[in-house]
Design a protein around this nucleic acid. Structure first.
Length: 495
RNA sequence: GCCGCAUUCGUCUAGUGGCCUAGGACACCGCCCUCUCAAGGCGGAGAUCGGGGGUUCGAAUCCCCCAUGCGGUACCA
């Protein structure tokens, strides 16, 4: 499908950091726009002044750009359907609310929040259907004049039919019909003059000529009310697509927008900037997130950005909620890291190692890049793996240094003789190092894994490291020999 | 409570009446490779397609009922 008239929007409210669930919605909108050659509009729904979070917007824009999901219209890029902040459109919503009142399709309601709360409480107690009792819908104009004279604050409510049915079509779920009796008179304009989501989103989607609405399925129940609103305004409704929820990895509940911790589990990332900091690649995030709720075929899971755009089709979007698997994300991220060129990987590693406080230089990282590439799940795994290479005065812990099978003396002997042999080696390259060291092992009574284990800990302070000989070659003769000697000295000191 | 949506291996999924004694991936287990850890190779276990009724020569695929899960029921989005 190619249709330049496709206009979709991603419309988050700046109440918190950009998280996984929102990101998936944003991605599907972006992919659909790219696929159809349409436009991807970013609109900021900042009509809730009480929940406004000042860091939310910069976090969102940074994250979207990092992911590479650029918007055609919206904040910082403009467009001919602006403004793109709903707070800048307040007057517009007021006009439409007034118009609806004029037309007898909406009315002012003077009920206080306290009365509404009490009403709800009573309905709950009496097991009645909750909802506004429409008291102000039927008050006289004399009463209205009196309320106005008293200076009472009011909201504007839509007059909802009490009988009949309202139906609409969801591209994924088919025709959905609800009884109008289930709907109540929803608030369009709040007493502070700001619109509710319902009014603002209907007005904006119409004015911005949105062709398809792709949003989370939590919106599904409010669509019938929107249908009524569109009707009241004399407008037609955009195509509806309600995307499945993203579930917690256990598959038991909705993925939290906040940080969360399962019982006895490590803290899980949920904000996009956290994934970025941890060293997930934007291309892996895009690929993985695309697969949470969409599948191309039975086998393919790895897609380039272009393939995603080419293949993405609403027909293949799933209807049922999907659990988010961090393990599978890790796996995919590792696959993407392995596919990176050495220079590319080194550049990305440089930032992450520096941020971890290491005095890392590009040249050395580049040398290590091919060695660590297949050992990383996230870029930040490189910190533990490579920190030894960027500090001088390390002193291995004797407990990890001494190999059980070799004892203190055997370990010390291996360190000393290796240091000596490497010191005297004519050419300090990987092959020569390996040949020499293997010669020493053969001449000794020790096993390869124990002997090299001692050298590994002596050299890096760790039981797990990049391959030994390569690492030595990169560190250089002087550093290597010094580290091994120091390790041997550490054993002397420990006795 | 009421309304809506969903329901295939632990998880993500393929599947739109016969190709399914249900395919792939992650995770898991075993073996191989191996200087550690990875990566890689080979193999394994794992779903009577939520349950029950139909329709049909034939159902994971169509219809009905039930159960369960999720969502909604705000002057939040």
């Amino acid at each position: 499908m190619t249709n330049a008239n496709v206009r979709v929007r991603f419309a988050p409210s700046p109440t918190g950091y950009f998280h996984l669930g929102s990101a998936r919605t944003a991605l599907y909108n972006w992919l659909f726009a790219q696929h159809t050659g349409g436009s991807f509009i970013l609109r900021i729904e900042d009509t809730d002044r009480t929940r406004y979070h000042p860091e939310a917007l910069p976090d969102l824009l940074d994250s979207l750009r990092w992911l590479g999901w650029f918007w055609d219209e919206g904040p910082e890029v403009g467009g001919s359907y602006g403004p793109y902040y709903q707070s800048d459109r307040a007057e517009l919503y007021r006009q439409y609310a007034d118009q609806l009142i004029q037309d007898g399709k909406a009315y002012r309601c003077y009920c206080t929040p306290e009365r509404l709360a009490a009403l709800r409480e009573e309905q709950r107690r009496e097991r009645f259907k909750p909802g506004y009792d429409r008291r102000c819908r039927y008050i006289t104009s004399a009463q209205i004049a009196e309320f106005e004279a008293q200076g009472l604050r009011s909201v504007v409510r839509l007059m909802t039919p009490t009988e009949g049915q309202t139906a609409f079509e969801d591209l994924l779920r088919g025709r959905i019909v609800v009884e109008n009796a289930e709907l109540d008179d929803l608030v369009l304009l709040k007493s502070d003059g700001y619109p509710t989501y319902h009014l603002a989103n209907v007005v904006d989607d119409h004015l911005m000529q949105i062709s398809h609405i792709l949003r989370g399925e939590e919106w599904l129940p409010s669509v019938p009310k929107h249908v009524l609103l569109y009707d009241a305004l004399g407008w037609s409704i955009p195509a509806q697509v309600h995307l499945p929820t993203i579930l917690d990895p256990s598959g038991k509940g909705k993925l939290s927008k906040r940080r969360q911790r399962g019982p006895g589990e490590a803290e899980r990332l949920t904000f996009i900037h956290e994934f970025r900091q941890t060293g997930y690649l934007p291309e892996a995030m895009t690929n993985f997130l695309a697969l949470v709720g969409w599948a191309y075929d039975a086998e393919t899971e790895l897609f380039t950005r272009d393939e995603l755009i080419r293949y993405f089709d609403l027909d293949d979007v799933s209807k049922s909620p999907a659990a988010f698997s961090y393990e599978k994300l890790d796996h995919m991220n590792a696959v993407y890291i392995r596919g990176l060129g050495d220079n590319d990987l080194a550049n990305r590693l440089l930032q992450i190692l520096r941020r971890a406080g290491l005095d890392a230089d590009y040249g050395r990282i580049l040398q290590f890049a091919p060695l660590v590439k297949e050992r990383l799940r996230t870029l930040s795994d490189a910190v533990d793996l490579l920190d030894f290479a960027f500090v001088d005065g390390h002193m291995p812990d004797p407990d990890t240094l001494v190999q059980k099978a070799m004892g203190v003396d055997g370990t010390r002997q291996a360190l000393r003789e290796s240091a000596k042999a490497l010191y005297e080696l004519p050419s300090f390259d990987e092959e020569a190092i390996e040949e020499t060291l293997r010669g020493l092992v053969d001449a000794s009574d020790f096993k390869i894994r124990d002997y090299f284990g001692a050298l590994r800990v002596g050299l890096t302070g760790k039981r797990v490291s990049p391959p030994l000989f390569e690492t030595m070659a990169i560190l250089g003769r002087q550093d290597t020999v010094q580290r091994l000697r120091r390790a041997a000295d550490a054993l002397d000191a420990a006795e």
